[in-house]
Computed example of a mutant assay.
Amino acid sequence: MGDNVVDRYRDWGVMYPGGNAVNVAVHARRRQASAAYVGVLGDDVAGRLLASSLAAEEVECTRVRTVSGPTAYAVVRHDRGERVFDHGDTGVSMFRLDADDLKYLSEFDAVHTGDCSGLEDQLEEIAGAAAYVSFDFSDRPPAYATPLLPFVDFATFSASGADDDQVERLVAWAHELGPATVLVTRGAEGAVLSDGSRRHSHRPPALDAVDTLGAGDAFIATALVEHLSGSGLERVLDAAAGHAARTCLTLGAFGHEVRDTLPPPPGRQEARILPFFAPTDRTPLHLEGQWASTPEEGA
């Protein structure tokens, strides 16, 4: 539920459907879960690509709206298989959930959203309507995560470059604020999953990645589906790592390549920067021990 984009591969002249919420829904469906997407698309070629791709992936779109205006996009370049976001535009993707949306959420076992969806001020309402809430905090700082964690059941953080001690403190801090389950992805160092009493670590399989775009979302989707199916921590991480690795062997977050026929994107200075490109609030969680203090002391 929430964000969608088309990922525009500037060097190759192609684009792919994507966005954290869309990717998680698609990859959950590929793991045999029933999945739906709630969000807003523009009435342009990019919006039609997203709509057709979701339909092809058998993701339910009952609560998807199409409105006049441009679909969100992200400009992507690559460095030896690693995706690097350049800039982007939120288009019409930011929206507010209405009463019918909230009622719809209650029909599902879990709802996933994240830091790119702009739904932070409705997270308490979401938690009241949904049976279970998954939230991707990426590498947002404590000041962002602290007020949201009490409304989250399954929290995901990105902490690439963090050492073992930093990850341990991050997990403990997150649990203290609410989530029963905490997932920390660490890039080449793998991932850690905790249920509050047990923790399990997993190293990623070695592979020559073609494109890492969407791998983290594939990991989250698989971990969430396995966890809700009752799998143990080791099985959850094994399955998630395997599915994410396979995602790295193809282009795009989940395929559906088309030629990029959208108008050339403006330069970075002219573009409306997507939330996850904003540099002012992206101090990584694991730096400077920010989350090591108690909630009363602040972070």
Rank of each mutant, 00 (worst) to 15 (best):
E257R: 15
R272W: 06
G232F: 06
A244H: 04
H200A: 07
L193C: 03
F254A: 05
S201Y: 02
D163C: 11
H256R: 02
A245Q: 15
L249I: 12
R282Y: 04
A278G: 07
S160L: 05
A240T: 08
A240I: 08
R198H: 13
S160Q: 11
P204N: 06
L233C: 08
L262R: 08
I273L: 12
H200K: 08
T222M: 10
A271S: 13
R246W: 11
L177Y: 07
I273F: 04
L170M: 14
G178F: 03
P179W: 00
A218M: 13
L213D: 01
T261F: 05
V236F: 09
D260F: 02
E226F: 00
I220T: 12
V236N: 04
L170H: 04
T283C: 02
F276D: 08
A191D: 01
V167Y: 01
T283I: 04
A159H: 03
Q166V: 07
L183V: 09
V182R: 01
R198I: 14
L177I: 08
A206N: 14
L207D: 15
W173C: 02
D281K: 12
V192R: 00
S160K: 07
V258E: 06
A159K: 00
A221V: 13
T212D: 14
R169N: 08
A271H: 08
L213T: 03
V236A: 07
G161W: 09
E257K: 15
E257L: 13
H200M: 08
T185K: 04
S197A: 13
T222C: 14
L251D: 13
A180N: 10
G161T: 15
T280D: 11
E226Y: 00
A174K: 00
V225N: 08
R198E: 15
V236H: 05
G267A: 10
S197F: 10
A239Q: 13
E168L: 13
V210I: 14
E176C: 09
R259I: 12
C248L: 12
P279Q: 05
W173D: 02
G214I: 02
S231C: 15
E226P: 00
G232R: 07
T222H: 09
A159V: 07
F254V: 06
G190W: 04
V258K: 02
A218Q: 12
E226W: 00
A215Q: 07
H200Q: 11
A278Q: 09
G196L: 06
D195P: 05
R199E: 02
R268T: 07
S158C: 09
D260W: 02
H227Q: 14
A221P: 14
S158F: 00
I220L: 15
R282G: 05
R203A: 15
S194A: 11
A209P: 01
T261E: 10
S201T: 07
C248A: 12
G230N: 13
T261Y: 05
E257P: 01
P265E: 07
Q269V: 14
P264E: 09
